[in-house]
């Protein structure tokens, strides 16, 4: 078994913690609880007959007052960028965070997800924008932590990418 550090990135209240809890414990709570600092969870998955322990660092949500420090990103083997489909501003935050992550940990695999698919009618992020993201070679998935849709796929997708890519040297710029 190999262990991998994975960071959850995204604006505040996009559903990072909800996705992690749905993935790890298969539970969901409507009550919003802001994450202070970091919460660490773990789950083991098997991808391509390779067992992986995903150690998930659920970071606090970034907003105009609090910027995610690169300190927490160090040593990540992959990361997940979460957006809230109903708030267009979370897209800008996601782009900025991805840039920070790429600068800190280098070209490691990452997956992005537009959460709250259960409220599709209220989405502000449209197909055009999503296409632009995919043009930038982003993997963009849709999901709902509330309904449990697309959650396992999200993490397994990242795990698969990490297995396929030869391990990088941990030295980064």
């Amino acid at each position: 078994m190999i262990q991998k550090k994975i960071c959850m990135l995204g604006g505040f209240a996009v559903g990072k913690t909800s996705l992690v809890r749905r993935f790890v414990s298969n539970v969901f709570s409507d009550q919003y609880q802001t994450t202070i600092g970091v919460t660490v969870e773990k789950k083991c998955v098997t991808v391509a007959s390779q067992e992986i322990m995903m150690v998930l660092w659920d970071l606090y949500g970034e907003d105009e007052f609090q910027h995610v420090r690169d300190l927490y990103l160090r040593g990540s083997s992959g990361y997940i960028v979460v957006m809230d489909g109903t708030r267009k501003d979370t897209l800008q935050t996601a782009l900025a965070l991805q840039q920070t992550a790429a600068n800190t940990v280098g070209p490691v695999p990452f997956v992005s997800i537009i959460n709250k698919a259960d409220m599709r009618s209220e989405w502000e992020i449209d197909e055009h924008v999503i296409e632009q993201l995919r043009d930038r070679s982003w993997t963009v998935l849709f999901g709902s932590a509330k309904l449990g849709q697309g959650v396992d796929e999200l993490f397994l997708n990242l795990a698969t990418q990490m297995v396929q890519r030869p391990p990088l040297s941990n030295t980064h710029p």
Binding site: Q3, K4, K5, V38, T39, V40, E41, K42, M53, V55, W57, R74, G75, S76, S77, N170
Partner: peptide
């Protein structure tokens, strides 16, 4: 140090061991 991943862990018989991987991350 960099990843916060657990390399190895030992405990006495009497110790109550929670999830050591999560603890090392935390």
């Amino acid at each position: 140090r960099e990843t916060g991943l657990l390399l190895h862990h030992v405990a006495t018989d009497a110790a109550v061991v929670q999830d050591q991987h999560v603890i090392s991350g935390m």
